[in-house]
Nucleic acid binder design. Structure first.
Length: 423
RNA sequence: GGGCGGGUACCGAAGUGGUCAAACGGGGCUGACUGUAGAUCAGCAGGCGUACGCCUACAGGGGUUCGAAUCCUCUCCCGCCCA
């Protein structure tokens, strides 16, 4: 990553003589704070733009950092203008990436865009939100308009962007289409007459370019507000679906809880600040407790995880997820509900084939390896030789590793043993 | 159009005729330990066959050779320099 952003909770903002604290608390940069202060002082409801590319099916926790800020503005009387980047998603935002992204097909983008609409309102309140798609204005864009847009900036200007500059330096490819990304995003601000645009700190370049394009189009340039980037579960890189370090807002409660528990301890503070509503005093108490050694980081992390899961699934589901987690990972017991695999033939079977059929191994070789390494259990009893066929009865629990469980059932539906619970 | 350097497993990257199913790092997985799916330590890691073995794989095609990721050739793709 070219510019890893420590997602430290930002320092307390300066005393808010201009009354902007409620709008800017927890943010990183604000470009043209004076402009913002004036307009807010006049009581103007502002059009606050935030864009998201439907480049993956799920919105994740990282997206919710700007979304939560947007919600705050919304509650203070401003209008969220959400841009679904159904055109830029086909380019793939190269921000902060060191490689060209694969381009998505329009159909894939469309499918993702649909799922986003629901997910947005996991955080935002629907009333008064303006949701727009880029295709509304780019569908009819002609070459003339494209060239005119492109003439507003220079190549040198675009190449200042750190990820482009870095790739150029390292002699790695930069697709010409990628240079258009900031232009398109900037044009969105013109099309929606944005007064303010929010984004992660990695978006600063794009956001600033939006100001220039607006000015060139005769519009007052938008105010820019950036928020810290949320570090992913690996504890180092920005949360991103493609880095497989993301927590989906629609993931099941148990999965979210477990993923959050795998977060490195140093990120507990940033997560509390960025993706929970835990009060600042409580946050400080938690961090102080960990520093003093009086609070087990595991418990602090569990509190954070519970707060996050509660926001998406409610209190009961969050408590249940925590209880299950404790049961499986601390007490090393099976979870209360298990997936059922109808794979039993009724006689002795090759354990490897059972594992593959139950979806616990990808190949016979992998299955053999899991058994050899001692990772396979039948009803809690380790089985370490796959060459001896096994004949488990329906209801037996097949386990791989510490956290993958499957309840075995007969492959023949007619022979389903009575009393076997199907889920 | 010319010159040069590249394309290796999920990712990055070694290897430049046999001992290569391919070093090393990351990611993944298993075990031990534990405060968790965290940290640390150990190990595993193409597919099929219950050892020996076979098949597929080092951008793609063709070739040389007893034998090729490695040599030749054509094609495709990427980067740099020159035009």
């Amino acid at each position: 990553m070219s510019h890893p952003q420590a997602a430290e909770p930002p320092a307390a903002p300066p005393p808010a003589a201009d009354g902007l604290t409620p709008l800017l608390e927890g943010t990183v940069d604000c470009v043209r704070r004076e402009t913002l202060a004036e307009r807010v002082a006049r009581g103007e409801p502002l059009r606050v733009k935030w864009g998201i590319d439907p480049s993956a099916p799920d919105i994740h926790l990282g997206h919710t950092v700007p979304m939560r800020l947007l919600r705050r503005w919304q509650r203070l009387g401003h209008r969220p203008v959400i841009i679904i980047g159904d055109v830029t998603a086909r380019i793939g935002d190269p921000s902060g990436r060191s490689a060209t992204r694969p381009q998505l097909t329009p159909a894939a983008v469309e499918a993702n865009a649909r799922t986003y609409l629901d997910q947005l309102f996991c955080v935002l309140e629907p009333a008064g939100v303006e949701v727009r798609r880029q295709s509304e204005w780019f569908e009819g864009f002609d070459l003339q308009q494209m060239l005119q847009l492109a003439s507003a900036v220079t190549v040198a200007q675009l190449l200042q962007r750190e990820d482009f500059a870095q790739r150029l330096r390292e002699q790695r490819p930069i697709g010409l289409h990628e240079l258009f990304y900031p232009l398109l995003q900037g044009y969105d601000s013109i099309a929606t007459t944005a007064d303010v645009e929010l984004g992660g700190t990695d978006q600063l370049f794009n956001l600033l370019l939006g100001r220039e394009l607006q000015a060139a189009a005769g519009q007052p340039p938008q105010v820019i507000v950036t928020v810290p980037l949320l570090v992913g579960l690996d504890g180092h890189r920005k949360m991103s679906k493609s880095l497989a370090n993301a927590v989906g807002v629609q993931a099941p409660a148990a999965e979210q809880f477990g993923q959050l528990m795998s977060l490195p301890d140093e990120q507990i503070g940033p997560y509390l600040a960025l993706v929970t509503d835990v009060a600042p005093e409580r946050r400080r108490a938690i961090l102080a407790g960990m520093a003093a050694g009086t609070l087990n980081p595991r418990d602090a992390k569990a509190e954070m995880a519970r707060a996050v899961v509660t926001a998406f699934h409610g209190d009961a589901a969050a408590r249940h997820a925590e209880a299950e987690f404790t049961q499986v990972h601390r007490a090393h017991q099976r979870p209360t509900a298990l997936p059922v695999a109808a794979v039993l033939a009724g006689g002795p079977q090759d354990l490897r084939r059972l594992l593959v059929a139950a979806g616990l191994a990808g190949s016979l070789g992998e299955a053999a390896r899991l058994v050899r390494q001692g990772g396979v259990r039948l009803d809690e009893v380790r089985v370490d030789d796959w060459r001896i066929p096994v004949a488990p009865s329906p209801g037996t629990v097949l386990q791989v590793g510490p956290r993958r469980f499957v309840e075995l059932a007969s492959a023949d539906p007619a022979a389903l043993a009575p009393g076997v619970e199907r889920t």
